[in-house]
Design a protein around this nucleic acid. Structure first.
Length: 233
RNA sequence: GACUAGGCGGCG
């Protein structure tokens, strides 16, 4: 759909003209396209039109719209859809909360983000690695390393293992402190736990070495990247 | 069912 919204919606009308009904997946994709373009008003109208199409919104539908609204800064509107979601018997899940956590961390600080993790726990929605990674990243970036470490522990104790992104935020944090030894330790941990290191992760480490003046190390990583076919960006 | 959330850097 990217870059071809007009055509996509034209096709939708064409389909419907032929008596072919779009399904949930199709509508969710279109909704996502609108949200990605920041067209939240249109997204909301499209959402409202779903019932007339005989489409029942599912949790992906709500999650997509909530994400679009949060990214557009319309958190209050997003909240109303969270309510609607519940009254429509769509159980909010970890995807539902991420956009709130992300946006609130960004605008009101990590405390607000953490409050949403608490809300999830209270409502018996199991937080995911992604939910924790968002707050941990924000904590790292505001240099709250103690609390970040505690949240990391809480994440693991809930059965959520750190993934590629979680580890990368940690590498980034060490690099920001000029602690390349720590960054290397994290990389070793990644390898030990079988996480495949991607271009962004290598790039983070490379930048870390460069920013501390160790260009030779940076070049070594760059060579390694090309040798394992992880295209630098 | 290839539908939804998080990480680095550059450009705008």
């Amino acid at each position: 759909i990217d870059g071809h919204m007009e055509s996509a919606f034209r096709l939708l009308r064409l389909m419907e003209g032929e008596g072919l009904a779009a399904d949930q997946y199709t509508c969710n994709s279109l909704l996502h396209a609108l949200c990605k373009d920041g067209k939240t008003d249109e997204a909301c109208s499209f959402f409202d039109g779903l019932e007339d199409r005989g489409i029942r919104p599912n949790s992906v539908t709500f999650n997509t719209l909530i994400d679009g609204l949060c990214k557009a800064g319309k958190v209050d509107v997003a909240r109303t859809f969270l309510e609607k979601m519940i009254s429509a018997c769509c159980a909010p899940d970890s995807y539902t909360y991420s956009p709130f956590i992300e946006h609130l961390c960004k605008t009101k600080g990590w405390q607000e983000g953490l409050s949403f993790i608490d809300e999830m726990l209270q409502k018996d929605v199991k937080p995911s690695t992604v939910n924790y990674t968002i707050v941990i990243d924000k904590l790292f970036k505001s240099r709250n390393y103690g609390l970040a470490t505690r949240m990391w522990g809480q994440m693991v104790s809930l059965g959520c293992s750190p993934d590629l992104v979680t580890y990368t935020t940690s590498v980034h944090a060490y690099c920001n402190e000029g602690r390349l030894d720590g960054a290397e330790n994290v990389v070793m941990e990644m390898k030990k736990s079988g996480v495949t290191i991607d271009a962004m992760a290598y790039n983070t480490l490379m930048d870390g070495y460069a920013s501390v003046g160790q260009i030779d190390h940076a070049v070594t990583i760059l060579k390694h990247m090309t040798s394992v076919a992880s295209m630098p960006n």
